[in-house]
Design a protein around this nucleic acid. Structure first.
Lengths: 188, 188
DNA sequence: TTAGACATATATCATTTTGATATATATCGA
DNA sequence: TCGATATATATCAAAATGATATATGTCTAA
């Protein structure tokens, strides 16, 4: 699913500026989809060219001149159709696991620092998600929050459970930066 | 961390062609990092220009003409440094959760199909990961596999546990495609 | 009261990455 | 020996990131 489509979806919730959309990504979609201004504004522009959204410039208010986008009937229809057609999957890019994959090349204190950092990372994400539960949400949105909490705590707990063991093993192992090849099957 | 850096890391394991690197991504890094040919080949080219890798054309073998890349000492050093400096985090893009977020706009049978699809998706990923455990691995690599299994099963089990409930609730609720606004706080 | 920090708001752009396509040879099984 | 699949490289338009620039509004502590 392209970002354009997702913007359409967010405009189902309420009329919004590009800035508002960015906010929604950071607040409500934070744990499963990111987006940058560099893609949001061009998306909105294209969407308007295609007739899926309309925009008007606000005259009053604290920020006159801001551009508010509204979904058109065509855009609504298009979103429903796209949504029905997207097959569910997920993509993960974990710098943390890259780090762990090559952890034999790190020094033990560095590895320790990374593990602690990651545990904190998950903790802060969890706190953020849990705070969302204070508000009322549709069943679907509630599902995404609870799903996120479930996944995040599983990962945090895994680190908690294995950190000491990993660190102990790591301290005892030899290499660390040496140029020798890994004891790994070529086609692993 | 850029793909270039990661390619360097994979060349720590063994000399490889662009194709081999793609294979490693699909087999060993599958559950936490993807990469396409369109970025792998250019990365390798740049890496060579920068002196981080060297390449030679194979003359014999079943595929004469293939270009084998080797890490240079400089490349090795560079990788260790980059690795120590990357702060651990992870990025998730879940089309599945996008679907769930807007699930009130889907028809119940469609939602049901998506949920089943996702459960299968996690199952097949799990099978793949579990098969990796047959081989011997460094502690770090073993960690990435077990971490992946842990996270994947948490997510699969969450769907299993809540699928019926979600579907029941969904069937009872009204909207589905209607243009009415969501009962959601604007700044959720 | 006012300077500085932070929030709101939009825009642009080089660089990176994706995803699709094209091409060619090798291998393996029916 | 035909066709499917695996090995191998390359290119490119389109999408997305991440950084930067700009401007105004609001809140707070000296």
């Amino acid at each position: 699913m392209q970002l354009k489509t997702l913007c359409l979806g967010l405009l189902e919730i309420s009329d919004a500026t590009g800035y508002d959309i960015k906010q929604m990504f950071e607040r409500a979609l934070n744990h499963f989809h990111a987006a940058s201004y560099g893609s949001i504004y061009p998306s909105l522009k294209q969407l308007e060219e295609e007739g899926h959204v309309r925009s008007r410039i606000e005259t009053g208010g604290p920020h006159p001149g801001k551009r508010l986008f509204t979904l058109t009937e065509q855009g609504h229809e298009h979103f429903i159709k796209s949504l029905s057609e997207t097959e569910p999957d997920e993509t993960i890019r974990s710098e943390f696991l890259v780090l762990m994959f090559f952890s034999h090349l790190l020094e033990t204190p560095v590895l320790q620092e990374k593990l602690e950092h990651m545990e904190q990372y998950y903790d802060s994400k969890l706190t953020m998600l849990e705070s969302l539960l204070d508000q009322e949400h549709s069943a679907g949105i509630r599902f995404t929050i609870e799903f996120g909490i479930n996944a995040l705590s599983a990962k945090r707990d895994f680190i908690r459970k294995h950190r000491e063991e990993i660190l102990r093993e790591h301290k005892e192992s030899p290499d660390c930066g040496s140029r020798q090849k890994l004891p790994v099957e070529k086609h692993l």
